[in-house]
Design a protein around this nucleic acid. Structure first.
Length: 577
DNA sequence: GCCGTTTTCGGCCCGACTGTTTTCAGTCG
């Protein structure tokens, strides 16, 4: 039972209790717990195995949920959860997936028509049986059928890079509407989450501008789900949902704050405001008694009104940022201009698309001081990985190029394969001649967490490795991370002076935000690299930077914010282990 | 069910849109 499974159990309990019309705050407790658990860097299993009492440190986990976590880990089951499923059929949870269907309607459909599944709902809607129910009519039936179609074609969450590629042209389109003054993406896009459920866009405009009329006529719109004066929702042809909110300029800051979320962050902010006798909405911050408007024009004003400094969007997950802001202890987050070089890339020598010189030229154009060329090693035959002889040849070649370069340095590196037994794919005496050894797992992902942890630890302990690349090998929405005990791996990284990579490829973003924060907390340094396979890939660095910010990383936590000399010094020292 | 710089009891974010209603419930974010 991993954290995700346990979180799912609590999500199910919340849904079922809601359908049963239980106390909504009790429902929220289970939901809050699920949210926190799915974001924990350490597995609950290892926490319970070490010391059950440590569960008390997890916010939103009280006595009842504590007991259930222990029960689930020890028995693999949750009695309460099983009992709820005895009362209600499991298909009811699927009904909640249909947009426009909530717990009340599920309850009604089940009680009055005995509907237990999406198929039965679809049948009933087609037969016109739903209109017999209170508050339901012909239009509701149509809407439900449409929503079921939508669900069937649903692609799930979008990778952030993909969502941006659809959002940017729409933003340009909105900017051209007469009367529009500002257009800003908000929501998870502005927080730079690695995946995006839907795109939120905030528009400020003069009164009477026909923003919504124009928005729903955007050529890429497939379906209009709702259209009002200040809020409209559409589905694009690519199945991405987009919400647009239009407000006057004086509410811009409050609206941006509100629509950026996260929901959990906003609830905490509003809770805090309430205790101060204030009310926060998307229109501004108001005195609860006099209704006097205290802030709203800028986000800074909104935070100031509730006694806080500005909190960067990437931190707004209610994972301690409000407490840190209160104490003046927010991190000074890393910025893209802090990056001085890129330490993971490939060239035509293995599976890249540009030569060493072309990669270097592009990096210089970006203002970098250095790059590292890190080809694959021979075990990855499919990428034309380098054997010892070719590595030695490339070392000479790079030395030769470096002699011609001024104020720029190409580091001689490798992305050496970590084989199944934990050994490295190239001879030690060759690896020792390189400036930088990046090591990575590319095969046999189906090990147990214990085996995989041991495998990587063993590579770390050779004294030859500087950086572990894409440490979980996840491909977002395609391949799950391999099982590995990350806290233990971080401990080993600390022990051997190993740097952990944040791979900026938008499909990877590995380490994830949660693990980056764990690294920081454990004092392990990160390297933000692009793993470029052609020169434009170096621009992926922005995805890495924002993910690093989500992991609370500062300039000092990242190797490649350092000037060349210092990087070389650190690499040399690390290699002495 | 969780939580505590008013509290161990009594709170728990706030507003828009829709479809069905003659004044509002349900859903969503």
């Amino acid at each position: 039972m991993e954290n995700a499974d346990i979180a799912k159990i609590f999500e199910d309990i919340a849904d079922l209790l809601e359908i049963k019309n239980e106390n909504p705050f009790r429902v929220r407790s289970y939901r809050n717990a699920a949210l926190i658990i799915s974001g924990l860097p350490e597995s609950l299993r290892s926490i319970v195995e070490r010391n059950e009492q440590e569960l008390k440190n997890i916010p939103k986990v009280g006595k009842s949920i504590h007991e259930k976590i222990v029960e689930i880990i020890k028995t693999g089951k949750c009695k309460f959860h099983d009992e709820l499923f005895k009362e209600l059929p499991p298909g009811l949870l699927d009904l909640l997936e249909v947009s426009g269907i909530g717990p009340k309607k599920v309850q009604l459909l089940y009680d009055k028509l005995g509907i237990e599944s999406v198929e039965e709902l679809e049948k009933a809607a087609k037969e016109g049986r739903l209109r017999e129910l209170p508050h339901m009519g012909e239009k509701t039936e149509e809407k439900i059928l449409k929503a079921i179609q939508e669900l069937k074609s649903h692609k799930g969450r979008f990778r952030i890079s993909l969502a941006i590629s659809y959002a940017e042209p729409l933003i340009e389109y909105l900017k051209k509407i007469p009367g529009v003054t500002e257009v800003e993406p908000a929501g998870s896009l502005r927080r730079w989450k690695d995946t995006i459920g839907d795109v939120d866009i905030l528009v400020t405009c003069k009164k009477g501008a026909s923003v919504m009329d124009k928005f729903v006529k955007y050529p890429e719109v497939k379906d209009v789900l709702s259209k009002g004066e200040t809020k409209s929702t559409v589905i694009l042809k690519c199945n991405l949902q987009v919400d647009v909110r239009a407000l006057e300029g004086k509410s811009f800051g409050a609206a941006l704050q509100y629509f950026t979320g996260s929901k959990a962050h906003n609830i905490a902010i509003r809770d805090r405001a309430k205790k101060m006798g204030l009310k926060v909405s998307e229109y501004g911050v108001f005195d609860e008694k006099t209704d006097k408007r205290l802030a709203g024009k800028t986000e800074e004003d909104v935070y100031k009104a509730v006694g806080l400094p500005f909190i960067p969007p990437e931190l707004r997950e209610n994972l301690g940022e409000i407490e840190a802001a209160e104490k003046g202890k927010l991190p000074k987050l890393i910025e893209i201009q802090d990056i001085k070089g890129d330490l993971h890339m490939h060239t035509t020598e293995s599976d890249g698309g540009h030569t060493i010189e072309e990669m270097a030229a592009y990096a210089m154009q970006k203002g970098y001081e250095y790059i590292a060329i890190t080809e694959h090693s021979k075990a990855l035959g499919i990428t034309h990985g380098l054997d010892e002889a070719r590595v030695l040849k490339q070392i000479d070649r790079i030395d030769e190029i470096n002699r011609r370069l001024k104020n720029f340095r190409i580091l001689k590196g490798i992305e050496v394969d970590i084989k199944a037994d934990g050994s490295l794919d190239l001879d030690a005496d060759v690896l020792k001649q390189l400036d930088l050894v990046v090591a990575a797992v590319h095969s046999k992902f189906n090990m147990t967490a214990e085996e995989m942890t041991e495998r990587i630890e063993s590579a770390m302990s050779t004294g030859l490795v500087h950086i572990i690349a894409h440490p979980t090998a996840r491909i977002i929405a395609v391949r799950e991370p391999y099982p590995v005990d990350m806290p233990k791996l971080m401990q080993a990284a600390k022990k051997y002076g190993i740097i952990m990579e944040l791979n900026s490829y938008p499909e990877r973003l590995d380490l994830s935000d949660t693990y980056l924060r764990l690294a920081k907390d454990m004092g392990v340094m990160a390297a933000i690299s692009t793993d470029s396979h052609n020169r434009q890939h170096m621009d992926f660095i922005r995805f890495g930077i924002h993910t690093a910010r989500r992991g609370w990383l500062e300039k000092k936590d990242v190797l490649n914010t350092r000037p060349l000399k210092e990087v070389l010094r650190i690499l040399k020292k690390e290699a002495q282990h």
